[in-house]
Design a protein around this nucleic acid. Structure first.
Length: 799
DNA sequence: GTAGGGTTAG
């Protein structure tokens, strides 16, 4: 090598070293400096070694670019222990414990040191492998390395994962004292967290362990931020919020981190007002807020729906943080995007997102959730495809979003695509797919998912269990839903609500209310949805007195202010029972302006009882409020048709045509041998429909012998009565039931699903059918279930 | 040690 070249290399080396020295955690430009320097090295043919190489690896690691770091590492023939340790530590904290282990065990014993052991022990802990960490600690001792304070700290971190009782905690305490590290704050902090984590195990007495932790804390000669926050977070974890607060109030020093821990505890437990109050108090006491404070408080606002408070915090941040660091900007902007979408302002959330200097998966997922939640499925779909990366949560949001918005098939397809792209579905993803089956009434498919859940060990999952209850109920198998409800290891209010609703929809009104009473007895607090369900049940079962009583108890006993939907249920209840003047009174005196749900309930009630005047009034209000809604026109024309006012029927139809409103076509479907068969009115598409027509005709003769007479008032056009009977006999629900009777094994229950309400004549016909064929026929219509058995229907002709 | 996603019920 000639002298000039050697000098040049030295000059470059000095220059690179100086440039890389500017890279430090506080410098937001670190990563781009490293990239530039690195590119320059490649261009000038400079081969980095030693310090420069290790610095480069270090900066890449600290900037989370592990790919580049590992790439550089692989180019070195014999990396030194510093390079190895840097990468082991980085992989460890990123959760790539496999890669960390690979490097560690490829490191010859001769060059290992305590530091690299420490990094690897931490790696095991990060991967929740407490035993692996302890094993490696033993290896360290066996090979004659001296554990240092970092070693003890990381080993304690691992022990925190596996300790089982107070006795073990005390033994570990003794070992720490014996090791001579009993005065080192960082080691004692780690010991504190062993106690605190053990306290949250369901097998031990948390109060006694927290007391032991408190004793340890009090005996510490020196305490740092971590000691305080460990204690507060410990109390919070164990649900002792008051103790945490007392502890915090006893602090002479006002540490932001400690306050943050308290605020996030409040948020976590749903005490949003308390969180806001603390935020205010921090201002009064002059404790400087940081990004953790902001994110927690914004989360409180988002979850409590305090939109205006959240907006104020946003404005304050914009005013006081003109040049936020990237970390600050990322976390706070994510919290802001979440605030906006949860308050129903997706477009504002998107605005925040668009202006973010850096984004991560959390940001993308927030916007996706926003679109899904707003029912803007098309935008959600394209946003989903645009995403640079996805995680379990992304898939879950999209799968359940599709299911909830009626795209059942697409939802199930996405569930399969998720698996094919290498994501193992979690219980939440299963819940989404199961709900898709519920809407599709795809019982077989739902059962298969249930079986997979059990196989994967998710059978004690609350979310999946609740989804299964709903699925079985919506597929017409209440017994399966009930059985699941009785055997689930944990239940929450959602489970109770789902089960009560299931019983109510299937006509078991008394049982539903019994379950509701049991819920109260078990001290499960009913929420607004519980009451919606209970009121619907009363309405389906015609229980006016009970309905009134429960409605009153809502605000009287449980402090839940009835919303418009609750009033709508009451109107429904009263109208069905023919109590129109009471219903009118309620509409006139209710505290909120009556909207579409109220008038719809009134109209539906009027139709049942043929109350023309009131029905027309309700319909007029609905025409004003939602002129494009097909249901109103259909109900009104039904009303006219029942009393033979065919001129008015024609007028309504013309009105519909003029406004361009189309009636949703009726369709029914049935699952046979894992395949869904769909039928439309007067179907000619289904390949086997002719056989169904023949069978129904044959069945019709037997039914007539038992007294069945086609009820032609359910035909809405004015035509000859023979023709009317023909139209009735081609209704989609009759075809689906006929197909089921033909195809399903003898004696098996026939389960048919219809998008709209069942027609009155079909309802009557199925009663006779169930008697003739001696089988149970279950029909789910747009509103509820009908179980036909021995000539009777579970709805008691009240629907 | 403190934050920023999800799910199920009408």
């Amino acid at each position: 090598m000639d002298m000039r070249n050697a000098a040049n290399v030295r000059r470059l080396a000095n220059q690179y070293a100086a440039q890389l020295q500017q890279c430090c955690p506080h410098n937001p430009m670190s990563y781009s400096i490293a990239r530039t320097v690195h590119a320059h090295m490649i261009a000038s043919g400079f081969k980095p070694r030693g310090y420069i190489l290790n610095r480069l690896i270090d900066v890449y690691c600290k900037s989370s670019d592990l790919v580049s770091a590992h790439h550089l590492f692989d180019e070195i023939r014999q990396p030194d222990i510093v390079a190895r340790t840097t990468l082991i530590a980085a992989h460890s904290s990123a959760g790539n414990s496999n890669l960390a282990r690979e490097i560690f065990f490829a490191t010859p014993l001769g060059i290992r040191d305590t530091v690299c052991y420490n990094a690897m022990i931490t790696g095991y802990s990060h991967n929740n492998d407490g035993f692996g960490a302890i094993e490696l600690f033993r290896d360290l001792l066996r090979n004659g390395f001296r554990p240092d304070n970092f070693t003890f700290t990381s080993v304690l971190g691992a022990l925190a994962l596996i300790v089982e009782d107070e006795k073990q905690c005390q033994q570990i305490h003794c070992a720490v004292v014996k090791s001579g590290s009993g005065f080192v704050t960082s080691v004692l902090n780690a010991l504190l967290s062993v106690f605190v984590k053990c306290a949250s195990s369901p097998l031990v007495s948390s109060s006694s362990l927290m007391a032991a932790a408190r004793k340890l804390f009090d005996e510490m000669t020196e305490r740092d931020e971590l000691s305080w926050t460990t204690m507060i977070a410990g109390y919070v974890r164990n649900g002792e919020l008051d103790a945490a607060r007392q502890f915090l109030d006893g602090m002479t020093e006002k540490l932001v981190v400690a306050w943050n821990a308290m605020i996030s505890g409040y948020v976590h437990h749903g005490f949003f007002l308390e969180a806001l109050e603390m935020f205010r108090k921090m201002y009064l006491l002059g404790i400087q807020w940081d990004e953790f404070t902001y994110t927690s408080v914004l989360s409180a606002c988002a979850n409590a729906g305090f939109f205006l408070h959240g907006k104020q915090v946003h404005a304050y941040i914009l005013r006081t943080e003109p040049r936020p660091s990237l970390d600050f900007s990322l976390s706070v902007n994510n919290a802001l995007a979440t605030l906006y979408w949860k308050c129903g302002k997706v477009d504002e959330a998107r605005q925040v997102f668009n202006q973010m200097p850096v984004k991560d998966l959390v940001s993308w997922n927030a916007i996706l959730s926003g679109y899904v939640n707003a029912g803007r499925i098309d935008e959600a779909k394209s946003f989903f495809e645009e995403m640079p990366e996805r995680n379990l949560l992304t898939w879950t949001v999209m799968i359940s979003g599709l299911a909830q918005n009626g795209f059942g098939e697409e939802s199930l397809k996405l569930f399969n695509r998720m698996k094919s792209e290498g994501f193992e579905p979690c219980d939440y993803a299963f819940a989404g797919a199961i709900i898709a089956c519920a809407w599709l009434a795809a019982l077989m498919h739902g059962r298969q998912l249930h079986a997979q859940l059990v196989r994967l060990g998710f059978d004690s999952s609350l979310s999946a269990g609740n989804a299964l209850i709903t699925m079985y109920a919506k597929c017409g198998v209440v017994e399966a839903a009930h059985c699941l409800f009785l055997t689930m290891p944990y239940l929450d209010s959602v489970s109770w609500n789902a089960m009560i609703a299931a019983l109510g929809q299937h006509g078991h009104g008394a049982q539903a209310l019994e379950l509701f009473e049991l819920m109260l007895k078990e001290d499960i607090l009913p929420d607004r949805i519980t009451f919606l369900t209970v009121l619907s049940t009363c309405s389906h079962a015609g229980l006016v007195e009970e309905g009134h009583r429960y409605f009153k108890s809502m605000s009287g006993l449980y402090g839940i202010c009835p919303g418009e939907d609750h009033y709508a249920r009451m109107i429904d209840l009263l109208c069905r029972a023919g109590k129109f003047s009471e219903a009118k009174d309620m509409i006139e005196t209710m505290p909120v302006e009556p909207g579409p749900p109220i008038w719809e309930a009134l109209l539906a009630g009027c139709r049942i009882h043929g109350n023309m005047d009131l029905g027309i009034q309700a319909a007029e209000r609905l025409f004003e409020l939602m002129p494009q809604h097909d249901g109103t026109y259909v109900l009104l024309s039904n009303m006219y048709a029942t009393v033979g006012r065919w001129d008015d029927v024609a007028k309504v139809r013309k009105l519909m045509r003029d406004k361009g409103v189309k009636k949703e076509p009726g369709c029914s479907w049935i699952e046979v041998e894992n395949k869904v068969h769909v039928f439309l009115v007067d179907d000619i598409v289904h390949p086997e429909v002719q056989a169904v027509y023949n069978y129904l005709e044959e069945l019709g003769l037997k039914m007539r012998k038992l007294g069945y007479i086609p009820d032609t008032k359910f035909v809405l056009h004015d035509m000859e009565s023979e023709q009317k009977e023909y139209v009735l006999s081609t209704h989609s629900e009759k075809l689906a039931v006929g197909f089921g009777l033909l195809k399903l094994p003898l004696g098996a229950t026939v389960r048919v699903f219809k998008n709209l309400r069942i027609c009155g004549d079909c309802h009557n016909a199925f009663k006779f059918m169930s008697k003739v064929v001696e089988r149970e026929i279950v029909v789910r219509d747009g509103k509820r279930f009908h179980h036909f058995k021995n000539g009777e229907c579970s709805c008691g002709n009240y629907w």
